[in-house]
Amino acid sequence: MATVKFKYKGEEKEVDISKIKKVWRVGKMISFTYDEGGGKTGRGAVSEKDAPKELLQMLEKQ
């Protein structure tokens, strides 16, 4: 499965596409929420050019 690499609050993070719950576009950025486990929801964003094609496909399906 594909992963998304991004920075959040200065920390490098990587999340599996299957854990992503919601995806939306903000200008040229793709924002998303994902399941961190333990009932927590994380947030992240990547630029449109750095987003994996699976993430862009999720955006188109909504």
Rank of each mutant, 00 (worst) to 15 (best):
40 K>F: 15
36 E>Y: 07
35 D>L: 09
38 G>P: 10
37 G>F: 08
24 W>C: 10
58 M>L: 13
18 S>Q: 11
2 A>M: 15
58 M>Y: 11
22 K>Y: 15
42 G>Q: 08
15 V>D: 00
38 G>F: 08
19 K>M: 14
57 Q>A: 12
49 K>P: 07
36 E>N: 12
40 K>H: 15
7 K>C: 15
34 Y>D: 00
45 A>G: 05
14 E>G: 01
4 V>F: 03
60 E>F: 11
9 K>Q: 13
33 T>E: 09
44 G>E: 01
44 G>T: 02
32 F>K: 00
26 V>R: 08
28 K>R: 12
48 E>Y: 09
33 T>D: 08
30 I>S: 00
23 V>L: 12
38 G>C: 15
24 W>H: 03
22 K>M: 14
2 A>Q: 12
47 S>Q: 09
20 I>F: 08
32 F>P: 00
23 V>I: 10
15 V>S: 02
56 L>A: 15
24 W>K: 03
53 K>R: 04
57 Q>S: 06
27 G>D: 15
25 R>T: 10
56 L>Q: 09
60 E>N: 14
34 Y>I: 02
32 F>N: 00
51 A>W: 05
53 K>V: 12
52 P>S: 03
24 W>I: 03
52 P>H: 05
23 V>Y: 06
32 F>H: 00
35 D>S: 14
42 G>R: 07
24 W>R: 03
38 G>S: 09
22 K>C: 15
11 E>A: 12
59 L>W: 11
44 G>H: 01
52 P>E: 03
12 E>D: 11
62 Q>K: 03
29 M>E: 10
23 V>Q: 03
5 K>F: 03
55 L>G: 00
9 K>N: 09
48 E>F: 05
39 G>C: 15
13 K>R: 09
3 T>C: 08
42 G>M: 06
39 G>W: 06
52 P>C: 07
9 K>M: 12
48 E>R: 05
17 I>Q: 03
19 K>N: 12
5 K>Y: 03
33 T>Q: 08
10 G>Y: 02
53 K>F: 13
24 W>E: 03
51 A>K: 01
54 E>V: 06
55 L>K: 00
41 T>D: 07
15 V>K: 01
11 E>C: 12
15 V>A: 04
37 G>C: 15
31 S>R: 10
2 A>V: 14
48 E>N: 08
55 L>Q: 01
1 M>N: 15
34 Y>P: 00
32 F>Q: 00
38 G>A: 11
42 G>A: 09
55 L>V: 08
13 K>N: 03
42 G>F: 15
27 G>K: 15
34 Y>W: 12
16 D>T: 10
19 K>E: 08
62 Q>V: 06
9 K>H: 10
27 G>E: 07
51 A>G: 07
3 T>F: 06
26 V>Y: 12
46 V>L: 05
1 M>F: 10
21 K>P: 02
30 I>V: 09
49 K>H: 12
13 K>F: 07
27 G>M: 14
14 E>R: 03
45 A>Y: 14
29 M>D: 11
2 A>H: 08
50 D>S: 08
39 G>F: 11
50 D>K: 12
41 T>W: 14
42 G>L: 13
38 G>E: 10
52 P>G: 05
41 T>M: 12
12 E>P: 04
38 G>W: 07
41 T>F: 15
23 V>A: 11
9 K>Y: 10
53 K>L: 13
43 R>P: 07
46 V>S: 05
48 E>I: 05
13 K>E: 01
10 G>A: 02
20 I>T: 02
8 Y>F: 08
36 E>D: 08
41 T>A: 10
25 R>P: 03
49 K>Q: 08
56 L>D: 04
12 E>F: 10
37 G>I: 09
35 D>K: 08
50 D>A: 11
14 E>L: 02
39 G>A: 11
41 T>G: 09
55 L>I: 10
25 R>S: 11
38 G>R: 09
53 K>I: 10
13 K>Q: 04
3 T>V: 10
33 T>I: 10
53 K>C: 15
24 W>Q: 03
29 M>T: 10
52 P>M: 04
62 Q>M: 13
4 V>K: 00
8 Y>E: 04
38 G>K: 12
60 E>K: 08
29 M>K: 05
39 G>Q: 06
34 Y>M: 01
4 V>G: 00
60 E>T: 07
4 V>C: 02
9 K>V: 02
29 M>V: 09
57 Q>L: 13
43 R>W: 09
45 A>H: 12
14 E>D: 03
23 V>H: 02
37 G>Q: 11
60 E>L: 10
59 L>A: 12
61 K>A: 13
26 V>N: 15
12 E>L: 13
25 R>F: 07
6 F>N: 01
30 I>D: 00
54 E>M: 06
59 L>E: 06
25 R>C: 14
21 K>G: 13
38 G>M: 13
10 G>N: 05
33 T>L: 06
15 V>Q: 01
55 L>R: 00
14 E>W: 04
32 F>D: 00
25 R>W: 14
39 G>T: 09
31 S>C: 09
13 K>H: 05
32 F>T: 00
62 Q>S: 12
28 K>M: 09
9 K>S: 04
24 W>M: 04
54 E>N: 07
17 I>T: 05
15 V>P: 00
36 E>F: 11
30 I>L: 14
40 K>A: 15
55 L>H: 00
1 M>L: 06
29 M>R: 08
20 I>Y: 00
